[in-house]
Every structure is written in structure tokens, then in C-alpha cells.
Nucleic acid binder design. Structure first.
Ligand SMILES: NC(=O)c1ccc[n+]([C@@H]2O[C@H](COP(=O)([O-])OP(=O)(O)OC[C@H]3O[C@@H](n4cnc5c(N)ncnc54)[C@H](O)[C@@H]3O)[C@@H](O)[C@H]2O)c1
Ligand SMILES: NC(=O)c1ccc[n+]([C@@H]2O[C@H](COP(=O)([O-])OP(=O)(O)OC[C@H]3O[C@@H](n4cnc5c(N)ncnc54)[C@H](O)[C@@H]3O)[C@@H](O)[C@H]2O)c1
Lengths: 214, 214
DNA sequence: TAAATGTCGTGAAATTATTCACTTAATCCA
DNA sequence: TGGATTAAGTGAATAATTTCACGACATTTA
């Protein structure tokens, strides 16, 4: 834990590497080079080699990387074996989409329970996930450390405070609110309106440039 | 256009600034400092001042920024007056959520039409947006330059090729596929599974750090 | 009016991330 | 087997971004 301090930019790419290696493995490929990886995931090959090298020498010169070995390595590194249970708060448009999808494909993250304020939704299940009333949040949140926040923006800070009080230490925030949290809590904001606007801005103002941006 | 080349990191924050200034304006505030802005949107105040300074001297020493003036400035800079029409491809879980929401709040971006391969969906409207059959893509896409891609991953590259052929030059890609596009097309990937995984990774490996990440 | 205060704008420094380009070692093939 | 080829790993260069810290100046207060 917190071993050799991988750069943040690298850490963000790890799940991408993992998923792509998994695809290769399923396809039966046993070998891959940084160049092939680069073409597939649109990350410069030197960046890939640099990223991997933070973890030591994972490849073989003149050969490339062994898919199975690399996959196993990242499985451990990304703790793919231990499950990260997740709660979803706000079963509206976006929340419902996430419940139906539930990140099942090849992940260690799974939405275990959902909460909403709307009594008509409480008691139902969507995609196998039980929906509880938000009043019962504190009673039901045992052992869950990550929350996906898809409530109306006006509720965001208030619900966040309750989540943290109930022991959550990571929030994936889809509301436009820039929520305030204590030091030990990690928040990632995914602001879809901003993404769309910024895409439009780049198209207008950076014509013909081509830098893959997430 | 392409004026003085604003750094990409800055450009990505502009819509955030705009939205927050708009909120302040609605609340009737006429004045704001970089420190206040910083606390509200969790971006270092020096970064905010630096960002603004790329556009010239927008503030007044000892006073701060005039909300109305700044808002007007960003409205022009972000082309908030001319509309950017958007098409959405794939009216499934995620696509339906976006159509219902439609980024209406205070934006210049609006989903104008949607496409799907499922005949049962074609002809309907969701949130005022008409759904066409994907076969009719090329016939209907006039004057639209941005697409939101929410089709199954297996369709992503194929549909992208058709979109580009039909004149699209910006894609907001929600599929896990890292699509290949020509130089002049801009793609932003929003990979929700990766976001969730990377949040989990940071929580495990970077305990007690606190750097707001989008 | 003068002093105290607040806050911008920005050089310079620091940090972080990417990319170049080369050495080295392994593989491939004739 | 040996020479040609491939591709990892990495020091160093470069690029991008953030942050520090302070001078200058407007505002506010006494
Ligand atoms: N849907 C989109 O495409 C989209 C895009 C960008 C941002 N967002 C943001 O995501 C959030 C959710 O959007 P949405 O379209 O799903 O909204 P929505 O109104 O469809 O869903 C919100 C859900 O939260 C529930 N809720 C309200 N108060 C609650 C509370 N106190 N506790 C628990 N649940 C509560 C409501 O009952 C509802 O089911 C919003 O903040 C929105 O701004 C959505
Ligand atoms: N739903 C989520 O929470 C979520 C999360 C992460 C990633 N994603 C990704 O987003 C994409 C959409 O996810 P979803 O859950 O909405 O899937 P979905 O299956 O619910 O929706 C896909 C839609 O695309 C339509 N479609 C299929 N082929 C098409 C074609 N050739 N042209 C036009 N339309 C076509 C289908 O009819 C369907 O309506 C997927 O790639 C998925 O991996 C979704």
C-alpha cells in the first residue's frame, strides 16, 4: 500500500490497461508489445513503457509483454480479487442506467445497494439491486466505502455529509455540485455537462489538433 | 479562434467557471474574489487567477472580479450565444438518461436528434427529442457536428466511421472502445468503469491524500 | 487625507507528465 | 549458429501545469 508512489497520471491509466489486457487474453493472444497497446488504446508507447516500468521490469526485450503474466500482475495491483462494494444514491435517470449496467463485465466493483427518497421506488429492485429509503441510509451502509452520487444537485452536499458520517471514504460525484469533504475522503467529479461544453470549446478553438483527451 | 492558445488544462476548467459565475449572478452577487471561487469549486486560487490572466486583466486589484462582467466575458469566450447542436446515438440505458436530462439548464449544447437500431424505439420521442433509425443517419445529420456515443461497444467503431463520414467532427464517447478517428476529429472518452476502478485504486493506495480529481 | 487592508497579475520556482533517443538483451530466421 | 531485428527499459530533455510569493494598486476605514 502506498508503495513506491506511482504518478497519478499513471494510476488513472491502470484500469484501462487492465481491461485491454483482459480483452487480449479472452481473444487468446499471449503476447503484446507497447506499440500494439499504444495503437489500441491511444496512449503513446513510451508512456506505456514508462508506466509499466514503475512496477519493475514486466516485459522482455525483443519480445514484448506476456499477456497472461501482465494481466495477473495488474489483477493483483488493482486488487481485482477483493471486491469493492458500492452504494448508489439517487435512482433517477442516471442512477437507473447505472443499476441496469452495474459495471459487471469484468470488474471488482459492484453496486450492492441503492437509496432514494421516492417511496414509489423503495422496495423495488433494479438489475438485482435493492432500493432502500434514504432515511435508512445509516442503518444499511455497513462495509461499504464507495458511493455513486446521482441525486439532484441541491441534495448533494447534505447527502455527502451523511455518507461520510456513515463511513464512506470515496465518492463518485455526478452532480454539478463541487462538494466539500474532509481530508480523508476522496471525491472524483464526473461533470457531464462540462465535458460536453469543453468538447465544443476545443472543437472551435483548437482545430486540427489531435490529442486524445479523456 | 485559436487566439493565444490557452493551455488545455485551463480550457477544461472554463465551463466550470462559467457555470459557477452564472449561479452567483442568479443569486444576485455582483462581486467575487479568486479565494471565494476557489473554495466553491475546489481549484487553487492561484490557478484561477492564472487561468483568467490568459485572457487579459479581468479583475481589479484589491476588489476582485465583477460577476456580471466576467460572466459576459466567458459567455462570449465559450460561445454561449451560438448553439451547438448534438446528436445522440444509442437510446439505451445511458442514452435515455441523457435525453431526459438534455443538458438544458444553462447551456448552449442541446441534443437535437437521436438514433437507434431498435425499431421499437424509432419514431418515439424522449424529452422532446425525436428518435430516428440508424439506417437514416446520413440523411438526417445535417448541420450537426457533435455526437454522443452510447451504443454497445461492439458497434462503436463502425458507427463512429459513419458519423465522421456524415460530417461529425467531435465525439463524446461513453463506450469502453478507444475509437480510431482521423486527425481533424476530436474525441473525448468518458469511461465510467475506469473512473470507478481508479477511484477504488486511489482510495487503497493513496490514503489521506487530498487532491481533487475530476 | 492617510493608513491599513485586500486581491489581482505574474515572474520565477517547483512539480508533474510526456517524449526522445539510445543501450541492452532477447528473439527470429536463414 | 550467427547476424539481423525487435522491443523493453531508462537517462535526459522537453513540455505542461501548478504553486509560491510579492509588487502594485484599488478600496475601505479611520
Ligand atoms: N441524467 C443526466 O443525463 C445527467 C447529466 C449530467 C448531470 N446529471 C446530474 O446527475 C444528477 C442526477 O440526474 P438525474 O437526471 O438522474 O436526476 P433525476 O431527478 O432523474 O434523479 C434524481 C433521483 O434522486 C432522488 N432523490 C431526490 N432527493 C433525494 C435524497 N435526498 N436522497 C436520495 N435520493 C433523492 C429522486 O427521487 C430521483 O430518483 C443530477 O445532479 C444531475 O444534475 C445528470
Ligand atoms: N449504462 C451504464 O451505466 C454504462 C456505464 C459505463 C459504460 N457504458 C457504455 O455505454 C454504452 C451504452 O450502454 P447502455 O447501458 O446504455 O447500453 P444499452 O444496451 O442499454 O443501449 C444501447 C443502445 O444502442 C442501440 N444500438 C445497438 N446497436 C446500434 C447501432 N448499430 N446503431 C444505433 N443504435 C444501436 C440499442 O438498441 C440500445 O438501445 C455501452 O457501450 C456501455 O458499455 C454504460
Amino acid at each position: 500500500m502506498n508503495q513506491n508512489k506511482i504518478p497519478q497520471a499513471t494510476a488513472k491509466r491502470l484500469p484501462l490497461y487492465y481491461r485491454f489486457l483482459n480483452n487480449l487474453h479472452i481473444q487468446g493472444k499471449s503476447r503484446v508489445s507497447s506499440k500494439e497497446l499504444s495503437e489500441a488504446i491511444k496512449v503513446d508507447s513510451a508512456t506505456i513503457r514508462r508506466d509499466f516500468s514503475y512496477f519493475g521490469a514486466l516485459g522482455k526485450k525483443g519480445y514484448g509483454y506476456n499477456v497472461e503474466y501482465l494481466l495477473g500482475f495488474f489483477r493483483k495491483t488493482l486488487d481485482q480479487d477483493e471486491n469493492t462494494p458500492v452504494a448508489l444514491i439517487g435512482v433517477g435517470n442516471l442512477g437507473t442506467a447505472f443499476l441496469n449496467y452495474n459495471f459487471t463485465k469484468n470488474n471488482n466493483t459492484k453496486i450492492e445497494m441503492a437509496f432514494d427518497a421516492d417511496k414509489r421506488k423503495v422496495g423495488k429492485t433494479i438489475g438485482d439491486v435493492q432500493i432502500y429509503h434514504i432515511e435508512d441510509l445509516e442503518d444499511n451502509l455497513e462495509n461499504i466505502s464507495v458511493a455513486i452520487l446521482t441525486v439532484p444537485v441541491s441534495e448533494a452536499q447534505n447527502i455527502t455529509d451523511r455518507l461520510i458520517n456513515a463511513g464512506i471514504s470515496g465518492v463518485l460525484n455526478f452532480t454539478p455540485a463541487r462538494i466539500t469533504v474532509p481530508e480523508h475522503v476522496r471525491v472524483h467529479h464526473i461533470d457531464l455537462a462540462v465535458e460536453l461544453q469543453s468538447l465544443a470549446y476545443f472543437m472551435k478553438h483548437y482545430p486540427l489538433e489531435h490529442e486524445e483527451e479523456q
